[in-house]
Amino acid sequence: MGTQSDWLKISLGHWRNQALSTHTKTRRVEVALGERSYNIEIGQQLLTDSSLLHALIPANQVMVVTNETIAPLYLDALVKSLGTKQVATCVLPDGEQAKRLDSMLPVFDELLANGFDRDCYLVALGGGVIGDLAGFVAATYQRGVAFVQIPTTLLAMVDSSVGGKTGVNHPCGKNMIGAFHQPKAVIADLDLLSSLPDREFRAGMAEVIKYALLGDAAFLAWLEAHLPEVFARDTEALAYIVERSCQNKAAIVQADEKEAGQRALLNLGHSFGHAIEGATGYGPWLHGEAIAAGMCMALRLSARLSWITAEECARGIALIQRAGLPIEPPSQITPETFLDFMQRDKKNRGGQLRLVLLKGLGNAVVSADYPESALLETLQEYSDG
């Protein structure tokens, strides 16, 4: 399994060789999935670009789903840009706690009350929670309607808005109820990141670092050298990390749209991270914070297995720490609690706990071929118990 990332390097090659100009207003990444293909538009002032929005949202009936934090900032501007279309809106509570089945009902209520038919479009204006929930509504309303993602967080721009995973949480597990439903487009307006709190921005960087660790060693080196520009929110640096991350994810999604194999690589740190979120009640830890700690745990386990060197492990953890992210889970989470949540993970097969681990920085593998004792030692290392 040590060569699993080779196909990713090949898939990314054609993008890197094109060397897009750093001065173009809009960058575009294609997610090539046959009849389900779509583009990710990356640039500035896209939310107020009426011609772009009308081209990407051609329906007369448009339902905008957003939350209480984003609505006062951007909802009016989006509705104005949509012009004379029949636009309805649904504003949901903010936060991971809203990502549940009963939060979908107000959206269905608005769709039905406004007589929206199968030709309507849903627009997800928000972060990962809104994108996942609105996408799941789109996947199920009248057995499937079109939707467009307008992510407002860094995490959503680089990860959750791309790839068609939609769904909600259940008290027993994260994202356990959902569907694969690809958007018609993703509109990543970098200007929306100006209102993003620093903590949310750092959480988004966890997913950016994830792409570098799992299959893009050159990107890892770039991040190590340019982290100050990224955290200064330099426009060109932001455009680059969003584009490069989307290129990485597009390559994986194109190879394995419905996670039959290679797409599971995108879950580096997630088995541990989802357990942290579940054990802390979905809220105190942001998703990206939990994934950051989870990636450190995956790095430590990979080093314990001698799949990476101690130096490689330290290098990965150092970058996560420089990004201002947690490098350890809460110490009160016992190994038993970790295992309880991890055993519900969707990657597991035949009762085997499959983890995404590293056989070198930039070379991730999905494996159940590790001693259980090594996993237990890693979990115990972080526990008070």
Rank of each mutant, 00 (worst) to 15 (best):
S5K: 01
K9A: 14
G13E: 15
Q18N: 10
E30R: 15
V31C: 13
A32R: 11
R36A: 13
I40D: 07
E41T: 04
I42S: 13
G43M: 10
D49V: 10
L56Q: 15
L56G: 09
A59W: 10
I70F: 05
A71I: 06
P72T: 04
L75M: 05
D76F: 07
S81K: 05
S81G: 08
C90L: 00
G95T: 04
M104W: 04
Y121I: 07
A124C: 14
G127K: 11
D132P: 08
F136H: 06
V137L: 03
T140M: 07
R143V: 06
Q149T: 04
I150E: 04
L154G: 06
V158H: 03
D159W: 04
S160T: 13
V162L: 15
G163K: 05
G163R: 14
G164H: 00
K165C: 09
T166Y: 08
H170K: 02
G173C: 10
Q182W: 06
K184A: 11
D189C: 01
S194P: 00
P197I: 00
R199W: 01
G204E: 02
E207G: 05
V208S: 02
V208P: 11
A212K: 12
L213K: 01
G215V: 04
D216M: 12
A218L: 12
P228C: 04
E236F: 03
E236Y: 07
L238Q: 09
A239I: 00
S245L: 03
K249P: 13
K249M: 08
A255D: 14
R263M: 06
A264W: 14
G269A: 12
S271Y: 04
E277I: 00
Y282R: 02
L286A: 11
E289W: 14
G294Y: 13
M295S: 10
C296R: 10
C296K: 11
L301M: 11
S306R: 15
W307T: 07
E312H: 11
L319H: 01
I320W: 00
L325W: 06
I333Y: 08
M342A: 05
V356S: 04
G360E: 07
G362T: 03
N363S: 14
S367I: 10
A374V: 08
L375Y: 07
E381R: 13
E381D: 14
Y382G: 00
Y382P: 03
